[in-house]
């Protein structure tokens, strides 16, 4: 394993520890470690295990899911600018959740509507793009762009119609915000399944970069691989969006960063995307909570503020 891969792997515990350490209450490092081991005073244990751990694990899993989805979609669509939201999933989730909020539905029902909206968006993209001859990447991109624009218009309409008091809550779905993320278990299960499914196809994904005809001639069952990986990417995006909203740039930037430092083979790229995406968002969220404390910035703002210059730098470096 290259030294940089070890660094990325080490970033996982480092970012999680940092996220547990940061917050509006100062906890000395020694107290943090003893609380993690089950010792220390009850208040510190409650802050670390009851408040910060679910938040840190939510941030990590969202980043990991988005980076995995981004890495998969970039190769499937043969488009370096593909990101998880190209599938229209976040737009669908936003419309579902905002409509439920406007109708005065309870929080659980809002999440159910968001899930339904996201699933409908993904299903619509699949229906437009899967042909008897296989997947059509252009159709995915175009249908995704069209649906996203449509969802954007509906979101604007809902925001216009919504009472001013509700608008603040609605922003969660639009900006990306982890302040409400408390139960990341389902997202971790999706991450495990999606990452495992994608990893079994790593070699086939390497070959898919040569084009579909070449991949078929080398023995890749192209349509089955694409279907499995599209479903994994859509499920990963849905799980991330439902937990943390539309957190931008993680899915776009992380896989590119890894490719630029030499991890282009998918056997390494996919697990490292999970590790780096998770660490990046866990650290960004910790920064968002602490930089202007006691005001919490939405994590999506921090990822975008780091992501935009990084992306521009990458574009300069790319020939």
């Amino acid at each position: 394993m290259k030294p940089s891969a070890w660094l990325i792997v080490l970033a996982v515990p480092a970012s999680l520890l940092w996220a547990l350490w940061q917050g509006s209450v100062d906890i000395p490092a020694r107290d943090l470690l003893s609380a993690l081991g089950g010792g220390g005073d009850e208040v510190t244990r409650e802050i670390v295990w009851g408040l910060r751990a679910p938040r840190a694990l939510s941030a990590f899993v969202c980043g990991a899911l988005l980076a995995l989805a981004g890495a998969l979609l970039q190769v499937l669509l043969r488009n370096p600018l593909a990101d998880p939201f190209i599938l229209g999933v976040s737009g669908g989730a936003s419309v579902g959740a905002l409509a439920a909020m406007l109708a005065g539905a309870a929080l659980a029902l809002q999440h159910l509507f968001a899930l339904a909206g996201a699933a409908l968006a993904a299903a619509a993209i699949f229906a437009f793009s899967l042909r008897p001859s296989g997947w059509n990447a252009y159709r995915v991109v175009l249908a995704g762009a069209a649906l996203s624009a449509g969802f954007g218009a509906i979101v604007s309409l809902l925001l216009t119609l919504a009472p001013a008091a509700q608008v603040q809550g609605m922003l969660f779905w639009l900006l990306g915000d982890l302040s409400g993320a408390k139960d990341p278990l389902a997202a971790w299960v999706v991450l495990a399944l999606a990452a495992l499914a994608a990893q079994t196809q790593a070699a086939s994904l390497d070959i898919l970069t040569l084009g579909e005809d070449k991949a078929r001639s080398l023995g890749v069952a192209v349509t089955s691989v694409q279907t499995l990986v599209f479903v994994a990417a859509a499920a990963a995006t849905m799980a991330a969006v439902l937990l943390g909203g539309a957190l931008g740039f993680v899915g776009l930037v992380v896989p590119h960063l890894l490719r630029l430092v030499g991890y282009y083979g998918h056997r390494a790229l996919l697990p490292l995307s999970v590790a780096l995406g998770g660490s990046f968002l866990a650290a960004a969220d910790a920064l968002a909570r602490s930089v202007a404390a006691p005001i919490e910035l939405p994590a999506g703002v921090v990822t975008a503020l780091i992501g935009v210059p990084t992306l521009l730098y990458l574009l300069l470096k790319l020939r």
Partner: peptide, 13 residues
Amino acid sequence: GILLQDEPADFWG
């Protein structure tokens, strides 16, 4: 096996 006439040239490895 087949050598195709055209193939994407953006392989990263």
